[in-house]
Design a protein around this nucleic acid. Structure first.
Lengths: 140, 140
DNA sequence: GGGGACACTACAGCCCGCTAGAGGGTTTAG
DNA sequence: CTAAACCCTCTAGCGGGCTGTAGTGTCCCC
């Protein structure tokens, strides 16, 4: 009767859709930890699956792996107080908020372009640099 | 009385804050065009400044240069009808919208983490993999 | 106990979006 | 006329986030 050691790397890969190589890479960055069996294999707790999903989500939103590691590992670098975790999260939240605002503005830009194009834009001329931007021809 | 040829690359760089090398790189990707003087220098129309600003904005929001080129250059690859430009923009707008939704959801996640941490989270234990995620200890 | 799937390390390479440097020509201010 | 500042091309390298390969060891099912 063997002791349950946790998930092997391939199982984590399968459950998360993240490649084995990527998981090992995460480990080198301190994003994901594992215990080693006597065979040298990595064994992960079940929660590792969640953690990897969190990583993917954050990454999809433009956070770098380094950023994510910072959020994820705060309590491991010395005995940092809980307030720091909160302020770190707060900072990320504010960054996210700012980014959302920018995106909304940019979306409005694109909508303006779309509508202008539809209504009053002349067909592009050979001298145009870009259909989306007022053309200023070379002066002569 | 020399003919006004437009902006030299250094002027565009200065006005946009984008490095000269980056502008030349954009050209190789078909993002930005220029005319060449007899000296071999690139000369840009005034609108190039706007165009570069557009590029930076889009880029800051996670669009790849290739994506941006696609939006910017549609009318140059053959005689593509105007509807395509509109549908392309529409697609980008929808992508942006979806991304905004994801960000809002992720922000909510982070807020949950922040609040949970503040109220009922125990101080981290040595066995935890991550302060933000329910700990499932190695079974034994 | 043999074969295939799976794991390990170490290192090389790839794509993206640049930057830096070599080696050379052009423009322009004094 | 000269020196500095600018421009050119070409090639190399870098950081981030991986993927792939080589060479080897381990697990597990029949």
């Amino acid at each position: 009767m063997t002791i349950a050691l946790g998930l092997k790397i391939g199982e984590v890969a399968k459950q998360t859709g993240v490649a084995v190589g990527a998981l090992r890479y995460y480990e080198t960055l301190g994003l994901l930890r594992s215990e080693r069996g006597d065979n040298g294999y990595r064994y992960y707790p079940l929660a590792a699956v969640q953690q990897v999903q969190f990583i993917k989500k954050a990454q999809a939103l433009g956070f770098s792996l380094e950023d994510i590691a910072e959020v994820l590992n705060v309590h491991q670098r010395g005995d940092i107080p809980c307030e720091l975790v909160q302020s770190l999260l707060q900072t990320k939240i504010e960054q996210l908020d700012a980014q959302i605002q920018e995106m909304l503005a940019f979306k409005a830009d694109l909508e303006r372009y779309r509508d202008r194009w539809g209504t009053r834009h002349p067909h592009p001329q050979p001298g145009d640099i870009c259909p989306l931007i007022e053309t200023v021809p070379f002066s002569s």
